[in-house]
C-alpha cells in the first residue's frame, strides 16, 4: 500500500465506484441522450454516471486526507468456498439433477467454516438435501429432475 493512502477503505471504495462508473459510461456511448425536454434512454444513466464518478472522486480524496483502519486480510477461503459452489450449482443443475448438484454445493460450503468435523458436515449435508428435496420438489412441486442426464437420469 503506498504511504499516501491513509485510509485504504475510502480510497479503494472511491476507486471501485470510479471503475463502475467507467463501465457504465462505456455503455452510454451507444445510447441516444436526448434533451432535458425529451430525454433519451441515455439521459438518466448519464446523469447518474457523472454523479457516481463525482462521489467516487470525493471518497477517494477522503482516503488520502483522513486516516482510517486497513481492511485486514481478505478471507479468500470464505469468499471462494461460498461463491464458487453457488456458481457450480447453476452450471450443473440441469446436467446432474438437483440431488447430486445440491449435495456437492452444500458439502463444499460447509468447508468454509473451520469448525466442522467431517462426519458432522456429511450428516448436515444429507439432512439439508433431504429437507430441500422434500419441501421444494415434493411439497412445492418445483419442476426439477432429481437426477439429470449426466448421471443416467432424465
Amino acid at each position: 500500500m503506498p504511504s499516501f493512502v491513509k485510509n485504504p477503505k475510502d480510497f479503494f471504495c472511491g476507486l471501485l465506484l470510479l471503475a463502475i462508473a467507467a463501465i457504465f459510461a462505456v455503455g452510454i456511448f451507444e445510447l441516444p441522450i436526448g434533451t432535458a425536454f425529451r430525454m433519451g434512454p441515455g439521459y438518466f444513466p448519464l446523469v447518474l454516471v457523472i454523479l457516481l464518478a463525482a462521489f467516487g472522486v470525493i471518497i477517494m480524496i477522503n482516503g488520502l486526507r483522513t486516516t482510517g483502519e486497513p481492511f485486514g486480510a481478505i478471507p479468500w477461503r470464505g469468499v471462494a468456498l461460498i461463491s464458487l459452489p453457488v456458481i457450480f450449482y447453476g452450471v450443473t443443475l440441469k446436467g446432474l439433477g438437483i440431488v447430486p448438484a445440491l449435495v456437492i454445493t452444500v458439502f463444499v460450503t460447509t468447508l468454509a467454516s473451520q469448525r466442522w468435523s467431517l462426519t458432522m458436515a456429511l450428516t448436515s449435508t444429507a439432512a439439508i438435501v433431504v429437507f430441500s428435496v422434500a419441501v421444494f420438489i415434493y411439497g412445492l412441486g418445483l419442476p426439477l429432475s432429481l437426477y439429470g442426464p449426466w448421471v443416467g437420469g432424465y
Partner: peptide, 14 residues
C-alpha cells in the same frame, strides 16, 4: 448457513 445457501440456490433458480 449451508441450509441458507441451499434455499437461496433453489429459490433463485425457480
Amino acid at each position: 448457513y449451508p441450509a441458507i445457501i441451499a434455499v437461496c440456490c433453489i429459490g433463485v433458480y425457480s
